[in-house]
Nucleic acid binder design. Sequence first.
DNA 1: AACGATGACGTAACTTTGTTACGTGGCCCC
DNA 2: GGGGCCACGTAACAAAGTTACGTCATCGTT
Lengths: 176, 176
Amino acid sequence: MRDELVRAALTVLRREGAAALTVRNITAEAGCSTTGIYTYFGGKSGLVEAIFVEGFEGFDEAVGPSLAAGDLAAAGRAYRRWALDHPTQYMVMFGRAVPDFEPSPAAFERAAASFAQLTAGVARALPRAGDAGDHAYHLFATVHGYVMLEMSGMGTHDDAEAEARYERALRSLAVG
Amino acid sequence: MRDELVRAALTVLRREGAAALTVRNITAEAGCSTTGIYTYFGGKSGLVEAIFVEGFEGFDEAVGPSLAAGDLAAAGRAYRRWALDHPTQYMVMFGRAVPDFEPSPAAFERAAASFAQLTAGVARALPRAGDAGDHAYHLFATVHGYVMLEMSGMGTHDDAEAEARYERALRSLAVG
DNA sequence: AACGATGACGTAACTTTGTTACGTGGCCCC
DNA sequence: GGGGCCACGTAACAAAGTTACGTCATCGTT
């Protein structure tokens, strides 16, 4: 039933957004009672944390191949693609879209693992650069900023223009 | 009473965070009944929009002088300073910290005005660069990404290290 | 100066949401 | 076969957003 609840929560989140991610909506989608969330996750926050962790696992799957190949530009494109394909989940992970949710130390460790994968990819792609951690963080922050602004509705509302601007940013990063 | 409600909402937001930004908490802080929010703002979302707009006005005041002087690095520092001094309001503006809130077109226009100020500052600081709008957006996105990651608790929890990393990012941006 | 209307504001109720106390039924171990 | 334990549901409670309605002051009109 635990997995079923996570699946139902992701379904509701994708279909109706973070504001509709209520205990009753989730359990109705899962076809069970509200108490399951408390026995398996200790409350709504615990279930949201499972969504948080699942998001980073999805990230790793989406971005990992490009990183393993040492192609940072492709990784950047895969990152934006995943975020735009899962906007509500992305906002749960980075935008505090669920008010009472604060990731636990274990959840932060899972996020750090994704970042370690990125650092390893940077070290592979730029073997003679300085501190790979610094470069990785800069790439992460820049890409995250572009994606976050685009998803917040700031900047243009033209998707093609946003993509073109993002491509220029990736090229600019490759130079630096 | 309208201004009093905005002041009370900002006080509650700063003191207890976005999750405690409830109609009852705000009106208790303002010393009035809950209905005032509906007569003056049409509901909680309208009041949150006032907070959103007030945030961009605060930004303009904080960053404007450096931009007018053509000092982009100082503007970047002022941006981070304002964000770290108003973390919960920043999350209301750029995250989804209030679930049902979506900025209206008028609110987006106010945000666009702040971006126009940034673009003018870039054009002043880099008169012989290409498209000032592109450069401004790149600066905005990068700085936003750094600040957002720092406020999300990703990356280091050491404030001095975060600041040093941010300074390196500003220097890297100045070169590019 | 008296009267009626308008608008600001509060009281109290309704709906929804997160949470929990408690009951029920099936399964395992002796 | 019986007792305990675990999974799960029912139903209630507290808090939050919202709204119907009543009250009082203020202002223009006669």
